[in-house]
Design a protein around this nucleic acid. Sequence first.
DNA 1: CTGAAAGCGCTAACAT
DNA 2: ATGTTAGCGCTTTCAG
Lengths: 338, 338
Amino acid sequence: MVTIKDVARVAGVSIATVSRVIHDGHQVGEACRARVKKVIAELGYRPNSNARALVSKTTNTLGVVTPKLSMPFFGSLASGVEKAARESDYKLLMSNSLYETKSELEAIDSLRDHNCRAIILHSEYSDEKTLLKLAAEIPGLVLINRYIPSLAHRCVWLDNVAGACQATDHLLQKGHHQFAVVTSIYQNGDPEFRLQGIRKSLKQAGITLAEQAVEESTANIEGGEQAVNALLAKGIKFTALLAYNDLMAIGAIHALFAAGLRVPQDVSVIGFDDLIVSRACRPRLTTMHYPVEEMASYATKLAIELSAEKHDVQHRTHLFIPNLVERDSVAACITAQK
Amino acid sequence: MVTIKDVARVAGVSIATVSRVIHDGHQVGEACRARVKKVIAELGYRPNSNARALVSKTTNTLGVVTPKLSMPFFGSLASGVEKAARESDYKLLMSNSLYETKSELEAIDSLRDHNCRAIILHSEYSDEKTLLKLAAEIPGLVLINRYIPSLAHRCVWLDNVAGACQATDHLLQKGHHQFAVVTSIYQNGDPEFRLQGIRKSLKQAGITLAEQAVEESTANIEGGEQAVNALLAKGIKFTALLAYNDLMAIGAIHALFAAGLRVPQDVSVIGFDDLIVSRACRPRLTTMHYPVEEMASYATKLAIELSAEKHDVQHRTHLFIPNLVERDSVAACITAQK
DNA sequence: CTGAAAGCGCTAACAT
DNA sequence: ATGTTAGCGCTTTCAG
């Protein structure tokens, strides 16, 4: 391993000078700088980032904590972070939180051990109090996909209510008036917000969503199937189905077809997220596009800024709005009104 | 930030003693160890990993380089690595190589700057020579999804030929004899290997695959659609279609249905990878399961072992075999023979 | 413009 | 069993 000393020795200067030219210091003579640069190139010298971190008490490393990278949603999140990090020349330290408070906290702690400059956290399980404490200790902490009022300026989140409203309105516009919902149980509150949005839009249209017409299950394909089967078993009639996310929507479509119902002819289905799967199913899924990657990049830049503490605390939050992607799972309602 | 000195001071011992109890050193008195442990807990002391890395010249950090985390395949890979890393108490430094030699190399270099103990590399674009050089310099480097003979013991790879044979044999068993293939262009050679496997199995069955019946496109949904449309336009007749991967298979199914052909009644389709999308499409995709996550975990453990250099170089490689997952996109051939 | 020197927090001899 | 000490590679005053 070639160190700064080696460079200094070969170039015939002190390590301080080498350090200066590395940092693009303008207090070095032309000739000297050129020589040092040459030696650096020849020797293939690369500064040891641990040594750097030790003395400067900060790193060019960003931490990311998400529940599980194997899920496409989180993969996209990670990718968005990576993109922004790369642009700012930061490295990424990643941890899965595995959907547990304990590992979520552990992950954060280990990130701190490494002196990460900033942390992008997709927290599902930590409570507000814990998060508040963390935020107080880590200037560069940004929450993605969660809104905590007192941490507003450090939250990058999606307006789930608005998204659900849009989805519902779209169905309403298509003439539907018999709705059903397959929702999920998720710590961060997203399902409730989406349900709120649905109810809100429906109410404006003078429709009340029966409790019976809302079925809860796990947020995956199987959950979607299960929920629809339950709906069907209860004899609920509906021409429009709102799913918590794409995976559940796809499961729903499977179950619907299995029951002899066609999508979208007999029932229209709308998802949420716009993952790649939504283009894989048939009919291709109409869904709300969740700009995760974009949000993640944004969150990353924000985290970097915050960590520099240049800014006064801004009294603004960072709210994204999903948008409707029309594909083939929604059709106009032609069923005779009952 | 609480340092080892703080702990030492409060506990009334020297930093060496603290260091010893941290490292579970057995050369510390019972009472003393208890006291130090107590102080550590009270102060919430956590060793600075940069300082540690600096002096010990190694870290508990693993590097991972994959093309793009937003692709589910690589997300799964990352997840597999994370799982194994977590079990061995390692942290993960990640970089996307973005499908470029340059960024692939940059990613590796930056990982080395951080003194990563080992590196898991999914290399697509670097040539053998580069990889050989890298391997010589980094004891803990493991290649995943690529086989280089002289680096055999550090390659964790999949037998693509065997996988393609299995897929083809399955179709053969189902009575098919009119085959078509949608393949892709990919640097790492996988498409060619799979094509080899297909030809091999077909040959054993006395069938020759016409050049015309092999269509090449990009390895995604659109590519699959495109390829099938090209096949159809050329008037190729087939009852069985082998796709390079799940995404292409799904695109193929879309195109087939669009052309009025039913899957699996009119044509059977088989994919490769077994990503989540294969359970999202209708009919659900019969495909070859690629145990990425398992392979990634294995590769990680191997990398950790190799980095310790405890072992003599083992003259064995690490070859995984994909297995068939039967779902609904393949049916027995009932079309009258032409 | 350049060098000397003091540490950053920690580990690992080497003492005691 | 415990303490003292010398660095790891680098940044950063402070001198010159």
